[in-house]
């Protein structure tokens, strides 16, 4: 989790107001509004089918919304798609390249599509693909393919880059490498919109995030802000060798104390952990193995929507 000082704060790159989209009877977007500022990494987070990709596709001009207004770099993407294409880089979910296309050929080709492309050789280096220059797309690993797609999203020298489900299907090592690459993009000043259904990814990378559920934004803040705002119990656990922990239940913020042998679990909300540790110290009750469960965006999602995010898709 990090808070970046936004030097260029104040200039909106993307402004979405009351975006609506239906497919037949199905409401996919039900009044979505958000603003993405210059140079930030903005996360759009939610379970599969929440409407994230539809929202982003409307912003990219690939779909026409049924209602609401969108401005990207001050322009309506439905009207000025061609102009915006030159300034917006895209990595789409579920796209592949021809298996026989070599890495350098793909970059060289996509660079030729843009009026002021980046130096693709430098991008190749940046994305850690310089030793895969002559490798064919079909022979790349999942992580390498994804890094190539990021490079392709950046090869037109865009002001905004959309990255959709960047690390789905990657192993933990490859995810870390990809994250490091995004961190690097941050320094170049490109505004990044990251669409993901992985909470940890958004927590790690994004300056701000919108949590989308069933076509609505249920929270919009910094990842830390979203987590702090939720009003739900979390737990601290410790081993208590002497003394009675029952008194702790009376402390402000504490909702429950359970003891199993010398193992104690205290649940509560707000800043109860500090209060409890202070009380333990005051009463000279020695504790060991103290652990405070860190609340994550996953917990925030449960608290906001009443259900876990993609239970089947949990990763280690």
């Amino acid at each position: 989790m990090r808070h970046r000082t936004r030097i260029l704060k104040g200039m909106a790159v993307i402004e979405v107001t009351d975006l609506r989209k239906r497919y037949g009877d199905l409401t996919v977007l039900d009044g979505v509004s958000f603003t993405v500022e210059q140079g930030e990494i903005f996360g759009i987070l939610g379970p599969n089918g929440a409407g994230k990709t539809t929202a982003v596709e409307c912003v990219q001009g690939l779909r026409r919304p049924d209602g609401g207004t969108i401005r990207v770099l001050g322009l309506d993407p439905a009207e000025h798609r061609r102009t915006l294409c030159e300034q917006v880089g895209v990595q789409l979910q579920d796209t592949r390249l021809p298996d026989n296309l070599k890495v350098w050929e793909a970059l060289d080709l996509y660079a030729s599509f843009y009026p002021r492309p980046a130096d693709w050789r430098q991008l190749l280096e940046q994305c850690g693909l310089h030793d895969r220059r002559d490798t064919r797309f079909g022979k790349l690993s999942g992580g390498q393919k994804q890094r190539l797609f990021i490079a392709l999203a950046l090869v037109g020298n865009p002001r905004v880059a959309f990255l959709d489900e960047l690390t789905t299907g990657l192993d933990p090592q490859a995810r870390r490498t990809t994250w490091a690459l995004i961190e690097q993009i941050r320094t170049t000043g490109v505004t990044v919109v990251l669409v993901s259904h992985f909470m940890d990814e958004v927590e790690e990378l994004c300056d701000r995030a919108a949590i989308v559920d069933r076509g609505r934004i249920v929270a919009l803040d910094t990842p830390a802000g979203i987590v702090d705002a939720i009003d739900a119990d979390h737990a601290m656990r410790f081993t208590l060798t002497a003394g009675d922990p029952a008194d702790l239940a009376a402390l402000p913020g504490v909702s429950r104390v359970t003891r199993t042998g010398d193992r104690v679990v205290v649940t509560g909300r707000g800043d109860f952990a500090t209060t409890v540790t202070a009380a333990l110290a005051r009463h000279h009750m020695p504790v060991s193995d103290l652990r405070i469960d860190k609340r994550t965006l996953d917990d925030a999602f449960v608290a906001l929507t009443g259900r876990p995010l993609d239970p089947q898709e949990s990763r280690s």
């Binding site: 990219q60 690939l62 061609r82 294409c85 030159e86 917006v88 895209v90 789409l92 579920d94 796209t95 592949r96 390249l97 021809p98 996509y110 599509f113 843009y114 009026p115 037109g156």
Partner: peptide, 17 residues
């Protein structure tokens, strides 16, 4: 059909070409 299936046509529609 393979180009469409792989999303290559779709990917290209996000570029100026």
């Amino acid at each position: 059909a393979t180009y469409r299936e792989r999303g290559i046509l779709r990917r290209m529609s996000t570029t100026p070409v």
